Computed example of a mutant assay.
Amino acid sequence: MSTPSDEVDRIVGAWGSQRPDLDFSPLEVLSRVDRLSRHLDRARREAFQRSELEPWEWDVLSALRRAGDPFQLSPKQLLTQTLVSSGTMTNRIDRLVARRLVRREADPVDGRSILVTLTDDGRTRVDAAITRLVDAEALLLHALSASDRDRLAALLRKLSLGFDAASVSPPAP
């Protein structure tokens, strides 16, 4: 019984016949990750769009929702979680306030600071979006058993931790 092949197999096979001197095993993994990432991006955009959210809005609102009741964070905490610049975050908060998905409140601990708080409408939208997202992502993984998903998650975590450690470590001399 032969193993089914996909587009990556075709591409790697073609390269292998043209450049037999190279090891194409990295392409077998990372080209599939790239192709799957495109499917994931599409599924996420659709889930967010159905909740009338842009991906950047999802990033901010989901950070606030994950914070738990009272669903608020400082702009600095939002910066850390969303990995954008201070100016970008200010602009995003302004736009979310205008859409009434978040509000600014004085920080009760430090009156000079503000907290960004998720509104009821923001919470409704982010909750709907996460439900749609989880459903869409489950469909993307339907061909894998629970144990296959667990193994894949463990392998991807290992790869991700390697990248995270490399980005924190100073470059080698």
Rank of each mutant, 00 (worst) to 15 (best):
A106F: 00
D135R: 05
A43L: 11
E105I: 09
L141G: 00
D23T: 03
L118Y: 07
L53N: 15
K158D: 14
S2M: 07
R157H: 11
E137N: 07
D120H: 04
R112G: 12
H142K: 15
S113I: 05
R50C: 05
V109P: 04
L133G: 15
V116E: 04
S62M: 14
A106C: 03
R42H: 09
Q81T: 02
R100G: 07
T131S: 13
L118H: 08
D148H: 10
G111A: 10
Q81K: 07
V84M: 06
T80F: 04
G122E: 13
R95Y: 00
R10G: 02
L156R: 09
L22K: 02
A47V: 14
R157W: 06
A154P: 01
E46Y: 00
K158Q: 13
L133T: 15
S145L: 10
S85R: 03
A129G: 13
P4C: 06
L30I: 05
A128P: 00
F163A: 09
L36F: 12
V12H: 11
A143P: 00
P108T: 12
R35E: 15
Q72Y: 00
D110L: 04
A106M: 02
P26A: 02
T3E: 04
V126Y: 04
E46W: 01
G68Y: 14
D23I: 03
V116P: 02
T82G: 05
S5D: 03
A166F: 07
E105W: 00
F163D: 06
D41N: 12
D110A: 07
T80S: 09
G87F: 12
L115W: 01
D94I: 02
R32Y: 15
V12C: 08
D6S: 01
S145C: 06
A153G: 08
S37H: 12
A63V: 14
L53V: 15
E57C: 06
F48S: 09
E28V: 07
D110R: 07
T131C: 06
T131F: 11
A63N: 05
R95W: 00
T90F: 06
S2V: 07
S51F: 09
K76P: 00
L144N: 11
L73K: 15
D164S: 14
R45N: 09
L141D: 01
S31G: 06
R65L: 03
R19I: 02
T124N: 03
D59S: 11
G87M: 11
S169L: 08
W58G: 12
E137I: 04
V102I: 03
D41S: 13
E52W: 08
R103H: 01
T117M: 04
P173W: 08
A166W: 10
L101N: 04
